[in-house]
Amino acid sequence: MSILIDSKTRLLLQGAGRAGTFHAERSAAYCDTNLVGAVHPGKGGTTILDKVPVFDTVAEAMEKVEPTASMIFVPALGAADAIIEAVAAEVPLAACITEGIPALDMVRVNAYMQGKSTRLVGPNCPGLITPGQIKMGIMPGYIHKPGKIGIVSRSGTLTYEAVWQVTSAGLGQSTCVGIGGDPIVGTSFVDALSLFGEDPETVAVIMIGEIGGSGEEEAAAYLKASNYDKPVVSFIAGQTAPPGKRMGHAGAIIAGGKGTAAAKMDALRDAGVAVAQKPSDLASTLLRVLDERGIKAN
């Protein structure tokens, strides 16, 4: 089992430029990933990667190849429209990899998505992967291993770090979801935790947060209120970040004393989460918690 994507997922690429095509090729080469088509306005009727059909619009792709998930690589200033196009065509899942979308564009996307059926992951995220089945994003496939640990993170490369530690410790991942580093994202920590909670295959979750915003605090409140029964291990990046400086991610800024790593770590500990002090301690903290609770994860 897994969450959101598996070997039955029919994958669409939106934005078949250099980066989109490069990563689509790597996705298609990963295990059972089924890349059914691509959308690139003006290139309809052609193919990429020898045989994958390209369409001018998502609506046409929906009609012809019935994708169930779309990964979006459209450049920043056109990405909001690409997300809305996927939502309008009712693609069940859209993961927007694009970095640098203006925040006000995402305000409009968010307003448009109310009441619609599509789930958005990202933007500014590495995408999702269900190891051994499907890769829908830019993460290096080889660091993953099929298993029972769910991973959710606001950061791309720090997710890889967590994955690599889990794999190196001899465990594997059920699904890894990068929710993105922007102030407004489609899928929250709470959404991902809830999905992992319902997934029978996932026995524990690693949640990687960072300074800024209140997603981690909301996750802590959710874990507490729902009596979440799976162990959660966390790390919060930016313990040493100075206030008022935006740390690369548009969302990673300590403003007005809010969103500090310390406050997030306290909230998570209070909700029963095992918080690793150092990013290098993620796997060892996970192993300790699994051992304490007598949970077998391999």
Binding site: R154, G156, G238, T240, G248, A252, P279, S280
Partner: peptide, 23 residues
């Protein structure tokens, strides 16, 4: 590469007793 990993790297340097010159 990556803002999250960059922050985590700064955190690691601090834990090891050093101080980062930059992000």
């Amino acid at each position: 590469n990556g803002a999250g990993l960059a922050m985590a790297t700064m955190d690691m340097i601090k834990h090891a007793g050093g101080t980062p010159a930059n992000f």
